[in-house]
Simulated assay, not measured.
Amino acid sequence: MRSTPEVAMLSTWAVETFGPRAEQIRQGVTEALAIALENAQDAQKTARTELLHPFGFTLMSRKFEALADAFADMPGVVTVKPPGSQHELVVLGGNLLFPFRYAKDRSVSVVNARIGDGRPSGLVQALFTRFGPRPWAEQLTLGGVEAALPEPVTPAARALTRLPEGTRLVLIAYACNARAGLLDVWWGEAELLDRTGNLRWHYCEPIPLPGQAPAAELPGVAASVGEASAFARGAMPAPALNPRPLRERATAVPPMSEAPYAPDAAADEGR
């Protein structure tokens, strides 16, 4: 008698985000990415070139198409294709799924994931501004001008206004390459920190892949991050305080917190 593979338990975040369909959605995400990767590998083989352009271009398109196909028959699914974008975005039960490759191997932790290799597009910035989580640390203002990233006014950004106000951006971060295929998959919520695509995860957890150990147990890959992680629940360390001697306090001279400026030392740092 064949034993069925053990299914990893769903997290509280997954159940609260996707409801009773959470396991079905999680499985659909992995199957869609696997199909997209297989198509990209086939394109690379057919091209008969050492350059990886066929793999990259095929993966870019197929990851969105495969997600749309995977959930096409599920109730409550909406696909949005903003003007100027070649890809359809899947909105499932108020959650906008956005897949992106954060690494080509396991040498990069998902904690250090970035959206793209350069400046995020206007569409990506608009997605985070409208549907991403509220930043943990509000940006300071300079002269009354907000220092936070302004929402770009583009046709793609304006098209997103048709989505409900309560839509949430769910990121699907994956690592893969043309030779090894799909390595790791994570999903969660994050805020966009700057114009170079750096993220701050509010919550992130691995999605188990068939026949693979959980990503948190793999070398070089961080465990789940976010408010539910053990790190976030740890006690805040109390710094040791060194009181000033009575002799110094009697002089009424303010304490020195930094060493005096040394021109020679500064010159050494610039070499």
Rank of each mutant, 00 (worst) to 15 (best):
F98Q: 10
A113F: 02
F100D: 12
R101Q: 04
Q125C: 02
D105N: 12
G181S: 03
G166Q: 13
L192Y: 02
W13Y: 08
L59V: 09
P254Y: 00
C176F: 08
P243Y: 05
V15M: 03
R200D: 12
F100Q: 04
V15P: 08
D117P: 13
A265M: 13
A215Y: 01
V221E: 14
A47W: 14
V124G: 01
A147Y: 07
G56L: 08
D105C: 05
L33P: 08
P210E: 04
W186D: 15
L127G: 03
L192M: 00
Y102D: 07
T12G: 07
V111W: 03
K81Y: 09
A262C: 06
E189Q: 01
L89V: 10
E38R: 13
K81H: 10
E146N: 11
W13P: 14
C204E: 13
S121V: 15
V91R: 00
F131T: 05
G144I: 15
H202K: 12
P75A: 03
G211K: 00
G166M: 14
W13C: 06
L67F: 04
S229Y: 14
Q125N: 07
E16M: 08
R101H: 06
L10G: 05
D105W: 01
R26V: 13
M74T: 14
G234N: 15
E205F: 02
L171S: 00
P135K: 02
T251L: 14
S107I: 14
K104H: 07
Q27H: 15
A262F: 13
L92E: 09
L246Y: 12
A159R: 15
M236F: 00
D73I: 06
V145P: 02
S257I: 04
I207H: 04
A113G: 02
E151I: 13
V110D: 15
W13T: 14
V145M: 11
M74F: 15
L182H: 01
V110M: 09
V108S: 10
L160K: 06
E50D: 09
A156Q: 05
E31C: 05
L171A: 03
S109R: 10
G188V: 00
R114C: 09
R200F: 08
Q86S: 14
R247A: 14
S11N: 12
A223T: 06
G234V: 05
T167A: 06
N95F: 01
N242C: 07
E88W: 15
Q139P: 11
R106S: 15
G116Y: 06
L123F: 08
A235N: 11
A70Y: 02
L193Q: 11
E269M: 02
R62A: 11
A47G: 15
R2Q: 14
G211S: 04
R119M: 12
A250S: 05
R179D: 09
P237I: 03
T30Y: 02
R168M: 04
R179K: 08
L140W: 10
G93Q: 03
S85F: 05
L163M: 05
I25A: 02
Q44N: 02
E165G: 14
A103E: 03
K63W: 01
P120Q: 01
V145W: 10
P255E: 03
N177Q: 10
L123G: 09
R101I: 08
G270A: 12
L209R: 05
